[in-house]
C-alpha cells in the first residue's frame, strides 16, 4: 500500500512536516508562516489562547481549508492536500465540533470510521470495533443509542473512537477537553498516553495548557496566527510567557489603555 514506508523505516522518522503555511479568510490572514514538525510516535501539542488560529491550523493540514505552503505527510508533499487522500494515507482529525452523525447509532458512527478501510477490502475493521469498545466501555453500553443523545464526554469519546477506527498513523485532536469536566478530561488525556504507546502519533490542539504540556513531548504556542514560542513540553510548562499569553498579563499596552 505505502510505497514510502519501504524507503525509510528507521525510527524516529518525521511523519509530519509543515513549512511556510499560510491561511487567509478573505483579506484577513488567519495563519502566517507556520513551521511545525512531528516525528513518528510523538505527541506534539499546539497551545494558545482562544482565537489564535489553532483550529484553523488543523483544518488546513487536513485539507478542509484552502492554504498555501508545503505540507509533508508520511514522505509525500502536498501543496493543496485532498482530504480523502490524506485519510486513506492515515491522517485522522477529531474536529472541535465533533461532527458526529447525530441521527445514527453509536455503532454506525464507529463503523463509518472504518469506511476507507472497508473500501480497500481490509476485513479487520470489526476487530478494531472491539478494541474501541474495550477502550471506551461506555460506548459499548450505548452502542444502539443515537449519537445525538450522548452527553458531552461520551460525544468526545465517540469522536475519538470514530477517528481511531480508521487506524490513523497521525491523529489530530482539536480541543478534546472542550466543555468537559476535569475528571473526564483526565480520563481522555490518559487515553492519549495509551494511544501513543500503541504507536499512534498525536497532534493535540488544546486550550487547557497545563494538561497538554503534561502529556506532550514537544509544544508550540500559537498567538495571533503565528508560532511565538516552541520547545520541549516540560520546559514550556514552567515558562512564565505561556501564562502571560493566556491571562492577558503580557500586556504590551496596558499602560496606554489605563491612561
Amino acid at each position: 500500500m505505502n510505497q514510502s514506508q519501504t524507503a525509510h523505516h528507521v525510527a524516529p522518522e518525521t511523519l509530519l512536516d509543515v513549512n511556510n503555511l499560510h491561511v487567509s479568510y478573505g483579506k484577513v490572514e488567519a495563519l502566517s508562516d507556520i513551521q511545525l514538525s512531528l516525528k513518528e510516535g510523538q505527541l506534539v501539542t499546539v497551545i494558545g489562547p482562544n482565537g489564535a488560529g489553532k483550529s484553523t491550523l488543523l483544518s488546513a493540514i487536513m485539507g478542509l481549508l484552502p492554504s498555501t505552503g508545503d505540507i509533508l505527510f508520511d514522505g509525500e508533499h502536498y501543496t493543496s492536500p485532498e482530504i480523502e487522500t490524506l485519510v486513506g494515507r492515515g491522517l485522522g482529525l477529531v474536529p472541535e465540533k465533533r461532527e458526529l452523525f447525530n441521527t445514527m447509532s453509536v455503532q454506525d458512527n464507529l463503523l463509518l470510521g472504518a469506511f476507507q478501510r472497508y473500501r480497500r477490502g481490509d476485513k479487520s475493521y470489526l476487530q478494531s470495533l472491539d478494541e474501541i469498545y474495550e477502550l471506551f466501555p461506555r460506548l459499548q453500553e450505548r452502542s444502539k443509542q443515537q449519537a445525538g443523545t450522548l452527553s458531552g464526554g461520551e460525544r468526545q469519546m465517540l469522536a475519538i473512537g470514530r477517528a481511531m477506527m480508521g487506524k490513523p498513523r497521525l491523529l489530530m485532536l482539536d480541543e478534546p477537553s472542550l466543555g468537559l469536566a476535569p475528571l473526564i478530561t483526565r480520563e481522555i488525556f490518559r487515553i492519549f498516553n495509551d494511544l501513543r504507546s500503541k504507536g499512534v502519533s498525536i497532534l493535540l490542539v488544546e486550550q487547557n495548557a497545563r494538561a497538554a504540556l503534561n502529556v506532550a513531548d514537544y509544544a508550540y504556542v500559537l498567538e495571533g496566527g503565528k508560532i511565538t514560542i516552541h520547545g520541549v513540553a516540560s520546559d514550556l510548562a514552567n515558562d512564565s510567557r505561556v501564562i502571560d499569553a493566556y491571562l492577558g498579563l503580557a500586556s504590551k499596552h496596558q499602560d496606554i489603555l489605563s491612561n
Binding site: M62, L64, I83, E84, V87, G88, G92, L93, P95, K97, R98, E99, L100, F101, N102, T103, M104, D108, L111, L112, G113, A114, F115, Q116, Y118, R119, R162, A163, G166
Partner: peptide, 23 residues
C-alpha cells in the same frame, strides 16, 4: 451495508463524512 450508511452519513453531516474519507 456500510456503503448505504456512508450515504446516510453524508446526508447527516457532510464535514463529518469528509473527515472519514466519504467524499
Amino acid at each position: 451495508t456500510l456503503y448505504g450508511k456512508a450515504l446516510r452519513a453524508a446526508a447527516v453531516n457532510q464535514v463529518g463524512a469528509r473527515l472519514l474519507g466519504i467524499s
